[in-house]
Design a binder for these strands. Structure first.
Lengths: 246, 246
DNA sequence: CAGTGGTCTAGACCACACA
DNA sequence: GTGTGGTCTAGACCACTGA
């Protein structure tokens, strides 16, 4: 990254910086390599650190960089393709699909979820927490909301807290006939607890995948899965190995 | 938004601000309503404008706010559900699917696209530009890459530049048998030209939907569609009317 | 411990929308 | 014009990592 100055252009500095650094990443850096620190880079380009950071932020958003406090800024590997296609038409937790059950509790869901589940406000539901791991890295944290009416066979305390209880909820769910599901994807920012599971800071950009499971003519469960937007590419169909980076 | 001060907490100020403002949005503001300006808000909460902006940025990222230079900050309507399901199994531009053809040109595609198309580097392809409009608003800008080998019936200059030429490329494409398609979604930031079409600033967060169209055992075309992440929820299946806001 | 990125301040000026 | 959000500066201190 021999560049030292920016010529004046009728374009924000941080945007030009982003282009210049992006090109340097392609030509002069290998995946995993550590960049000079922010103060050094800012000085080299003759801008304030805040401006330099604005450029780095966008490059991180695009999955080109990875920044870790106390460590440094490294060149990110291409995004991992994660299959989220809905074609299997199966319940969550059926088979080994990369998800690990963490825990389950009974609580009042957020209002938006209650509305989608068509339950009474304040009505309690099972909330199963799961974590998806891909290539050894956590890529998604999920909250699965299951109304008690969907799993009538489940008695209050039939398993100790922890993975076992989560699995028992899923097992009950599998007794239902799955009639359909639909899915949506939107941008969000990580809540504090999800951020922790995903090894990111709170507020980090995430892709929120909401899935509605239909059975017996109603919504039997809702899954809200939070995927790391920096490292993941969600795939539908068999484009898992497609690489569109840069 | 009667709140005037933040109690000291072991949490970044901007994050606490985000919570406080977010709650105020739910309880005290209607969709479309204009918030006090940034200087006013910063003063009211006793923080620097930059800190206040960090909170607003995240709320905008989550689709709760909309900010326009020269105008102000308004409460955003719930995100629009946009169907991007792949189940129709049809070529782009077949039927009225909300896409408008803008133009078409012949040029060298970006390296990543060339790789996916399995064309020679430097080999020229048709590049069709389209715009997707939903509820009267532009929601996505698309670049559709079609190798000349996929549309052999198309002679060099068979239509004037503009929508007509774009449509003629699509028409040729429809002669092929579509054998399959796959799709992936990832986070990106808007390139300058897409940003303009989408009425956003360059660098705005977008959801990039990449679709590969397969015919005769090879990739016949690649579509890279850039959706506004602030206003869109991508839906697969029939969850178009599901609202998961807040 | 030293070095990194993360947060925060208090200013300044610019680009744009609208009356 | 005036008022808005967008960009930018030059500092400061904090939280975290790893030697």
């Amino acid at each position: 990254m021999g560049t030292t100055q920016l010529e004046p252009v009728p374009e924000p500095k941080y945007q030009h910086l982003k282009t210049v650094i992006g090109q340097a990443l392609d030509s002069e850096f290998a995946v995993g390599e550590i960049l000079p620190n922010e103060r050094e880079l800012a000085a080299r380009f003759g801008v304030a650190r805040a401006t330099l950071r604005q450029a780095l932020e966008q490059l991180e958003l695009e999955g080109r960089l990875q920044r870790r406090r106390g460590v440094g800024t490294t060149v990110a590997p291409p995004r991992v393709g994660v299959d989220v296609s809905t074609t299997q038409h199966s319940w969550p937790g059926a088979g080994d699909d990369g998800w690990q059950s963490l825990d389950s509790a009974v609580d009042v869901p957020p209002p938006a979820v209650a509305r989608a589940l068509e339950t009474e406000a304040e009505e309690r539901v099972h909330i199963v927490r799961r974590l998806r791991v891909s290539h050894g890295q956590p890529v998604a944290a999920e909250l699965l909301y299951v109304p008690e009416g969907s799993v009538p066979g489940l008695t209050a305390i039939d398993a100790p807290a922890g993975p076992a209880r989560a699995r028992s909820v899923l097992r009950e769910l599998h007794h239902l006939a799955l009639e359909g599901q639909d899915r949506s994807v939107e941008l969000g920012s990580a809540r504090a607890d999800d951020a922790k599971e995903l090894d990111r800071l709170p507020g980090a950009p995430v892709l929120v995948v909401t899935t509605r499971y239909l059975s017996e003519g109603r919504t039997a469960a809702i899954s809200v899965a939070t995927y790391r937007a920096d490292t993941c590419r969600l795939t539908f169909g068999d484009s898992v190995d497609l690489v569109m980076a840069s």
